[in-house]
Write a protein that binds this DNA or RNA. Structure first.
Lengths: 190, 190
DNA sequence: CAATAAATTGAATGTTTGTTCAAAAAATAA
DNA sequence: TTATTTTTTGAACAAACATTCAATTTATTG
């Protein structure tokens, strides 16, 4: 059997960027052919159809996000300090040119009610929340860890929307400090 | 001159519902003709094009939301109690079948970076934040009112995303209570 | 009642959409 | 090398897309 000749990761990286920025519906196959350099037949052989390519793009993004998150917690600073760092890095991200919010969040909101993909994305978001819960449960009771994780997710979703339209980094950080007052923000003063 | 014969408000109401649920890109003119009962020519005469109809739908939704919000504050309970009620009503909304998040939020995230509509929607969101700030400044200093309003907006955005995929009302309420601990939630215990 | 102006109609426009497929090329296996 | 399998190619497809417009209907004006 002949070897796959295009690099799947490279193609997925480019497709993900386009889907992320433009959205599922507004991204045409034509545009995907151009950005990936593949011809129709290759894409359809490798991914089935547009939805298949999109699903793999979601996987690509989500798995990378989850790996990244786990790595940050494994750097063995305090859990809460790490959470502060993560949130502040999200704020920083949101201030950059071409900021596209979070691919999972955007896709979740765009997808139709009866699409299986919506559930699929939900489970990735639940996995992420689970990581926060797990980490916090080293410091708090299970109930408290769950509540705090829910509060963190609310803030993450919030800032990924807020950061999309407002340019005031400082305002977001103030909002985070107020809402997540139990985190060690003082370590980040200067 | 002949009178406009279709009821503009009715048409906008129906168009808004469709755009809100399905999104801008995925909503076809065909579907809009069907849902409004109008023929192509009528829509194009009255609204110019798809984007024109969408913009008026945004206006329709935003103005109604803003009026609604102001009314709630004019009922003259305490400001903070009113805010709790608003947030809890959003949570309740999110638990209902066919929940579509917030039309402004969804559209904001869907629209392309260089679309004028994105700024347009941003200014509506800023207006809403301004109302919270204004109300809170009757109780707090300007700086504190702004910070609290930002925190409220973060939570509203957060719950309108969180509520889209999670079915646990209780978890969201817990998150709100923790993050917005300075609000009089105790009035809502029973 | 005409005369005039505006709104409605629905067929038709030319693109763009996602997808297919037979032929060609490339890679592996014998 | 030859035979076999897999990938790539790019033209072609029907369906759906947003939009237009001349003809018709409806409403207002004089």
């Amino acid at each position: 059997m002949a070897k796959v000749q295009f690099d799947r990761q490279t193609v997925l990286d480019k497709a993900t960027s386009l889907f992320w920025r433009v959205g599922y519906s507004a991204t045409s196959m034509q545009a995907l052919f151009e950005v990936t350099g593949l011809k129709p037949g290759s894409v359809y052989l490798a991914f089935g159809n547009k939805e298949g390519l999109f699903k793999e793009s979601i996987d690509f993004y989500a798995q990378s996000s989850i790996t990244n998150l786990k790595n940050k917690f494994n750097q063995k600073q305090g859990v809460e300090q790490t959470i502060c760092e993560i949130l502040l890095s999200f704020v920083e991200e949101s201030a950059q040119a071409g900021y596209c919010s979070c691919f999972l969040l955007k896709s979740q909101l765009e997808l139709d009610e009866q699409s299986d993909l919506r559930e699929y994305i939900s489970s990735y978001l639940a996995t992420i929340e689970g990581i926060y819960t797990e980490q916090l449960s080293t410091l708090y009771s299970e109930d408290e860890a769950k509540q705090k994780a829910a509060s963190i997710m609310l803030h993450i979703f919030g800032l990924r929307v807020y950061g999309y339209h407002s340019n005031s980094e400082a305002q977001i950080v103030n909002g985070l400090r107020l809402g997540l007052h139990w985190l060690p923000w003082s370590n980040f003063d200067h």
